[in-house]
Design a binder for these strands. Structure first.
Lengths: 265, 265
DNA sequence: ATCATTGTTCCATTATTTGGAACTTAATTT
DNA sequence: AAATTAAGTTCCAAATAATGGAACAATGAT
């Protein structure tokens, strides 16, 4: 029988947990705290059932219920995340190289990893300004319109890439955002050849970047690093120049991981 | 079977979710990624059961399984936390006041909230240095040996305070850490009178702080803000002077919350 | 005061989880 | 290299927890 080698679509049958995570997603993705009835409408479940599920989530600290009966994400999530982040080896190894790159260019440097269809940002090194702390770290962004995302996609074997791209639903964030699988796939192939990727204001108007892919040997991490900044300051010419240092930094990070993790495998 | 009729102590009966959260705690609190067998020993459950539970957590992205069969916290937790943090109203309202306090004193300023027996740090504003981003934010620290923690405890009604303190297990982090309920309770009473609290190197040697309590009217948030720094620079005399600005900032934060949230309740 | 809406509890039915054992795979020893 | 041990995975009847409809309580509007 098939172990997960084949990589077909997961049936996502995680029973009770799966149902609760859908709720947690619902509440954390909302723009504002939701009342019971709001969630009832969104979740489409019987009232009794929903009530118990929410109660369990609250009891575990994953959600919080304020005095007005509105549900908001729980602070226990912060504790989990802080631990997840603090011990992340990929990030620990990458950090000094990100700082180097930041100093060399003066612009903001990101580290991100592909998870499903999203890039999750693991680190961000900025210039002098008082940092907006979680501003980017932890955020999940689409893979098809970010430099790190496209760099990460260029690491996928042809088949997985086609499957993943086929499952995307494109949102046109700016005039340059890819909105078709064909043009995206064409660019990914180009990126795979070149070894670096650009974001030409595809996610946010006025913001562009150069990115290079980074991966761990066991393919647990497939992501990238990028130099990001305002388009008026970062011409395409400059971004092309920076492709080299970004790739070098990516190489040093992977070397660091081989030294740290390699011996055992 | 018994429903929890009396209702004093929480029976923590969240069924399936509760069991899975125990596992998640186990893995996120470990110092390094754990192998299946390690978790088996720690969790004390049948192998079949544990295997399925871990599989579900992995499928949902709450845990990750690397190429060596080691379980680590999942990156989906970061996404949840980023959302939880970004929309937190208490933090949003407090932020400008924390920045003011930082500028006025030149030292690091924290915002924390009481959750169970822990203080969870919601924000941190530092001086010039390139910020170590999650360094403190999201971290859960004991309430009995931090300035913010003791300030928060001073807000509890007498009965809840006694219950909470009775349930603490004290760890002696430094020579000044409280290790008995009696001395702690005595100090909390003093803090309740004064309206501010000190940390005299009780959690970390060489680090001290002044803190003032902050709370929301519905008591959803009971926490505090603090000015923290190295003991060689922050004399007790200086900390006493800063008690006033910390209390003023705390007052302004609460005023901000009344304006923002008050009208409705 | 009355009606409508929102939120909570109850319990027989249904679905999921449990845990022991059998099985497969990887690592270690002889 | 074969045998042995340990590590990880799958299976299924029994135990447990989740479900959802309906009754009940609390809140808010007319």
């Amino acid at each position: 029988m098939d172990s997960n080698g084949g990589g077909a679509a997961q049936a996502r049958e995680t029973g009770t947990l799966g149902k609760l995570m859908v709720l947690l997603d619902l509440v954390t993705h909302a723009d504002a705290p939701l009342r019971f009835t709001d969630i009832l409408a969104l979740a489409g479940q019987p009232r009794g059932t929903l009530h118990r599920q929410l109660s369990h989530l609250v009891e575990e600290g994953l959600l919080e219920l304020d005095g007005d009966g509105r549900y908001a994400p729980g602070l226990r999530l912060l504790d989990f995340a802080a631990r997840s982040w603090a011990r992340n080896e990929f990030r620990l190894i990458a950090e000094p190289h990100l700082a180097d790159l930041q100093r060399a260019t003066g612009e903001t440097v990101h580290l991100g990893v592909l998870r499903g269809q999203s890039i999750i940002y693991l680190d961000k090194v900025e210039g002098r300004q008082p940092v907006r702390m979680y501003s980017q770290i932890g955020n999940a962004s689409p893979c098809y319109c970010t430099g790190v995302g496209k760099a990460a996609l260029s690491l996928l074997p042809a088949e997985s890439l086609v499957d993943l791209v086929a499952s995307l639903s494109f949102t046109s964030f700016t005039a340059s955002t890819h909105i078709s699988a064909e043009t995206l796939l064409a660019e990914i192939r180009e990126i795979a050849d070149q070894g670096y990727a650009f974001d030409r204001e595809e996610h946010e108007a006025g913001i562009c970047c150069v990115a290079a892919p980074v991966w761990s040997e066991d393919r647990t991490f497939m992501g990238g690093i990028s130099i990001t900044g305002p388009a008026y300051r970062l011409s395409m010419e400059l971004l092309h120049q920076w492709a080299v240092p970004v790739q070098l930094a990516a190489g040093r990070i992977m070397e660091g991981m081989r030294v740290r993790l390699g011996p055992r495998r």
